[in-house]
Design a protein around this nucleic acid. Structure first.
Lengths: 186, 186
DNA sequence: ACCTGAACACCGTTCAAGT
DNA sequence: ACCTGAACACCGTTCAAGT
């Protein structure tokens, strides 16, 4: 509804998540975001290039949560697992977050994002190629998993057959454990 | 452009994929699909409930490709790997297919889809819980991976650093190998 | 049964104009 | 610098009406 504060990127981002939670991605429109802020839709264009950029900013939120967590672990295995768990938790706090991630197009050239993403893993002993490849696999798994988890029909059904937390973690550990096994023989 | 043949679900599906390839998911509209068929947009509603159902039908296409491949393998590990590879190949043949999969909502109640999805794996020795959990993980990984692979900016950059085929396969084998390791100790 | 034409309530985005 | 009002070219969907 009509609001105060001042209009900037972070206020718009917050309002966008509010609309997302209420309406889902289908219902996320700049007009509703503007209304949430007590402002007219074209006003948003002063702070944000277009809707695509807004969605990318929303998606970046989850990458940031993941990026903080990757610092915590000791081994590269721990880092991969912690960053994936953090990403999933951050995503589960928002409706349709997986759809947002998949619709988003990277903000910075991936060329600048990659080093920051992989540096902690390289410090922990991986080559930069391994770090990139493993991170890509873990992120893909996490986003894909949350997509299913957030699909209403899937959720209603699967929730009584499998434990989402446990199954996600099983798959994650399996993958990360498998990375290690790949290096040192069978 | 103006076309002939007769209008039915499969013709609409084909036209939708044509529009998808040309315009991407953002540009996929019922009006363009109708134009592709030489027909007016409301005509589509006789054959398809709405746009959401059309997108779900498109997504089902990839599940079918995967469902055929799962029959081929001998062990459950082989079946998981073959079905994932087939799904990825089918998806890579279409633009924005990962976005389509993530936006789609399941057609049949997941309750009917699940047995068909897991039966071959149960035959190969898994419990139905394991089959469901492992399949979910593998599908999540595959769809998530293709999402990154189809993201233009990601692709342009990563393509010169990692081999998509090899990295996907590495992650897939790692996960499936890890499933086995999870059962029998360490 | 199957399709058209016209309409409704929305979109994202642009742009002159205000302050 | 920052926002409004009005407009443009689109959407998905409904529904009477045609055949």
């Amino acid at each position: 509804m009509g609001a105060s504060a001042k209009l900037d990127r972070s206020a718009i981002l917050e309002a966008a998540f509010e609309v997302l939670n209420q309406e889902g991605l289908e219902g996320l429109s700049l007009r509703l975001v503007a209304e949430q802020l007590g402002v007219q839709a074209p006003a948003l264009y002063w702070h944000v290039r277009n809707k695509a950029e807004l969605i990318s900013l929303m998606a970046a939120t989850f990458a940031e949560a993941s990026g903080r967590a990757v610092l915590a672990g000791r081994t590269w295995q721990d880092k991969l697992i912690l960053s994936a768990q953090a990403r999933r938790q951050a995503m589960l706090a928002r409706r349709d977050s997986a759809r947002v991630c998949v619709m988003a197009q990277p903000l910075r050239s991936a060329a600048e994002a990659a080093p920051q993403l992989t540096a902690p893993l390289v410090t922990a002993g991986l080559t930069s190629r391994q770090a990139l490849s493993y991170q890509a696999a873990v992120i893909a798994y996490t986003v894909g998993w949350v997509a299913y988890e957030q699909s209403q029909a899937m959720h209603d059904f699967l929730t009584q057959l499998i434990d989402f937390d446990a199954s996600f973690t099983t798959g994650l550990h399996a993958m990360v454990r498998g990375f290690g096994a790949g290096e040192s023989g069978s």
